[in-house]
Each structure stands twice: as C-alpha cells, then as structure tokens.
Design a protein around this nucleic acid. Structure first.
Lengths: 131, 131
DNA sequence: TGAATATATGAACAAACGCTCATATAGTAA
DNA sequence: TTACTATATGAGCGTTTGTTCATATATTCA
C-alpha cells in the first residue's frame, strides 16, 4: 500500500491515485527513519493489548487488589460490585496476556499477579498522574 | 449502594433487595481489606486513561516514534498511513494526558514526549511480552 | 490585504468493548 | 448417583472508540 493512500487532502473532490499521493511529507528522512525503527506488528499488537488490559477500570481494580493478596472470583465480584461473570471474563483476558495466574483449592480458584511487571507498570503510571 | 447489588444469583427470577444481598462472599476480610486499600476513584480514572492511551495501535506507534525524535503531524500521518486529522485527534488526547508536548516553528508543530514515563512504561511492557 | 500551508475541531458511523443473563463445566460431599 | 458450589462461556445489547470527511483556525509570505 502506498505511503500516502490515506492522507487527507483539504478540499479534494474525486482524485486519481496519483493525485492522492501528492501528499505532504515535510521531513521525508524522519518518516523513513521512523518506519525503519518501528516495532514489528506482532510486538506492537502485544504491547497494545497489554496496555489495553490495564486501561479498564474493572481490570485495573482487579490487578490493584491482586497486588496486595490473592483473591477468588466471587470476592473480587463483591469488591467491585459487578457480577462474577464479568470478573471471570476479565480474568480470562488477563490470564491470556499472562498478567495473572491462579491456583485451585477445592472449587475455589485463587488469582494472583503472574509477575512483577504489572506492579512496575502501575507504579510508573502512578508517578505520572500524580505529578 | 449495597456491596452485593449486582452479584449474579444463578437461576434467580424476581428477587427482593434482601434476596439480592444473599450473595456469596467467601472471604469477607479480604473484600473489606481490598476496599480499604483501593485507590481513589480519581486516581484510578487517571491511571486508567493513561494506560488506555497507550493501548491503541496508532497512539502507541506515535509514542514509539516520538521517543526517537520529535515529529510534526503530517510526518506522523505519512508514517502511520492515516489522515492528519486522525493524528491530530490522537495527539490532542495524548496532550491532555500530558504524555506529549509540542513546540512551534512557523506553522509547523513539532511533537515530542513530555517526560520519561512513556519510555519507562513501554520498556516494562516490552519485557513482559517478550518473555 | 489575500493566498497558501499546517494543524485543530466537530459530526457521523462502523467496529470494538464491557456488561448482564442464561447456561455449561468442574470439583466436592451426601 | 444427585445436589451443591465456584467458575467459565456464549449470546445479546448498549456504550465507547477511532477513523474519515468537512470545516475552522493559525501562521507565514507575497
């Protein structure tokens, strides 16, 4: 796909492909360099999903709680004032991204953070918003 | 609002408020403790928005590029293959969250990262997804 | 002044998201 | 086995999000 396929041309009516490529690129070197140092689509997508997972009120509260101590689904649901179903759905997402793990004790599943990364991310973000 | 207002009761038809509160809380101490150590709604919301800002493909690519060097709107648009309008909208969001700043040189606005936090966040998240 | 350029903004719309409800599954105990 | 509990899953639905298009604003220069 052409670099400029989607560049918006002010006041343009119907344009040919050639016209569409008469786009503005002020610093072609910067664009080229940025494209070369860009992350792979796969890594970008994974990064994105990780941040997106943290970018939801319910999930963030879940992670914040699990940072303190492991909890089961129904306790989290009670704490958050949402259905256990909602919590279960969110935990599945967090599990898929390897942000949380669980251990079983009878019928109860205790969830906890999978590693230190979540804590570190929240810590840095906290610094940012509190400045 | 009651702690249990929204807890899903399996097979429940119409229930009174009292019935709805016959919910399952396995570890009441954990729930109470988690509620006490929870972040304020304001901080939670800000944290959330910050992560949400990073949790989008376009914005993440913008931030990744700006980490290397400052760029203007139209260059970012060319790099990302989206309209300048789209970039401008996203930059406004990032500006609002104090993740990026800009400096003017004539009619051109050069955008760059506002502080180290974005870099730190991306670094930690990268470690997580690459493990 | 007026034209040209770079960016910002508002409306509209398709796609993605998070919730609830209903139901299914897994483990425990009678 | 059957009953009960804790969790998981799929469908449906209203809300949010990210994009484009059209237009507005701001700066420079003739």
């Amino acid at each position: 796909m052409s670099v400029c396929s989607y560049i918006q041309i002010r006041g343009s009516g119907l344009k040919t492909a050639k016209d569409l490529c008469e786009c503005r690129v002020i610093h072609e070197d910067k664009v080229t360099k940025a494209r070369k140092t860009s992350l792979s689509p796969e890594i970008t997508e994974k990064l994105c999903q990780t941040f997106k997972a943290l970018g939801d009120n319910t999930r963030l509260k879940i992670l914040w709680a699990l940072e303190k101590e492991e909890m089961c689904v129904c306790d989290l649901a009670a704490m958050l004032d949402v259905t256990e179903s909602a919590v279960s759905h969110q935990l599945r997402l967090l599990r898929t991204l390897r942000l949380v793990t669980n251990r079983r004790e009878g019928t109860i599943l205790y969830y906890s953070l999978a590693d230190m990364h979540v804590s570190q991310l929240v810590q840095v973000a906290l610094e940012h918003v509190q400045e």
